[in-house]
Amino acid sequence: MSIHKSDIKKVTTHQLQTMKDRGEKISMLTAYDYSMAQLIDGAGVDIILVGDSASNVMAGHETTLPITLDQMIYHASSVIRAVSRAFVVVDIPFGSYQGNSSEALRSAIRIMKESGAHSVKMEGGAEIKESVIRVLSAGVPVMGHLGLTPQSIYKFGTYAVRAKEKEEADKLIADAKLLEECGCYAIVLEKIPADLAKRVSEEVNIPTIGIGAGPHTDGQVLVMHDMLGITKEFKPRFLRQYADVGSMITEAVGNYVKDVKSKDFPNEKESY
């Protein structure tokens, strides 16, 4: 189903809160370029995340750590030019906000000014409190991110489910409440037990958006390349693949190569 231009109403933080309050689930997907963002926006997704997952799916890095602020701004600018309705959130990349609230503010302002994005996302709880407060004080909306935080992957040493033990679960709940108190408008919960995600979603008033966090969060997010079957090697339990676009592309390109080699393309009708 595509959305007609006349029906477009820009999604805002206020609308996202209203959606939680009335029990309407929030849909969120990643995009990193103009063409894909246009398709996703046209299909009616509420939030587009310009994720630092671009480091993996666009640049081929093993982790999200190598991507730079300049590269994130480039991807975000491309997405913003395509979007009519969705709320666009941009990850502040690793090393651009941790431990230095002044740098966090500079990074957030650069993203907002140079890309035209609507919000930034930051990973962590109490550890990044000062940075979150500083960014929010400048009027920049902040989405939090708790649970499995990929920018800290070398600290975790694994992409396994987080917060299974009581101590880590209690900290996650405390961090979620802290992020709400600071003024974050939403929190991503990644790869945590469904029961814990349910508890967090009930105990904070702001929307929660899950990825591998069960059905009780206020919304869901997936990486677009994963749910479309473009990335072949990544098949975690939480991923539902909605299409096998990767195979379609391989087949189409194979047919093109065959037609060029056999001199079938271009034919007379395709020539001037």
Rank of each mutant, 00 (worst) to 15 (best):
C184Y: 02
C184N: 10
A186E: 08
A186K: 05
I187E: 12
I187N: 08
V188A: 07
V188D: 09
V188H: 11
L189M: 04
E190R: 15
E190M: 01
K191F: 12
K191W: 12
I192D: 00
I192P: 02
P193D: 02
P193E: 03
A194G: 01
A194E: 13
A197Y: 11
A197N: 05
K198T: 07
R199V: 11
R199N: 13
V200K: 04
V200W: 07
S201L: 07
S201I: 08
E202R: 13
E202Q: 14
E202P: 02
E203F: 01
E203H: 09
E203C: 04
V204Y: 10
V204R: 13
N205T: 15
N205L: 09
N205F: 14
P207F: 01
P207H: 05
P207W: 01
T208A: 05
T208M: 04
T208K: 10
I209S: 06
I209L: 03
G210V: 14
G210R: 03
G210I: 02
G212I: 11
G212L: 14
G212F: 06
A213T: 01
G214V: 06
G214A: 01
G214L: 04
P215H: 12
H216D: 15
D218H: 08
G219E: 08
Q220C: 04
Q220G: 04
V221A: 06
V221M: 09
L222N: 06
L222P: 07
L222H: 10
V223S: 07
V223H: 06
V223A: 06
M224A: 15
M224I: 15
H225T: 13
H225L: 04
D226P: 01
M227K: 10
L228S: 03
L228M: 15
L228I: 10
G229H: 00
G229C: 07
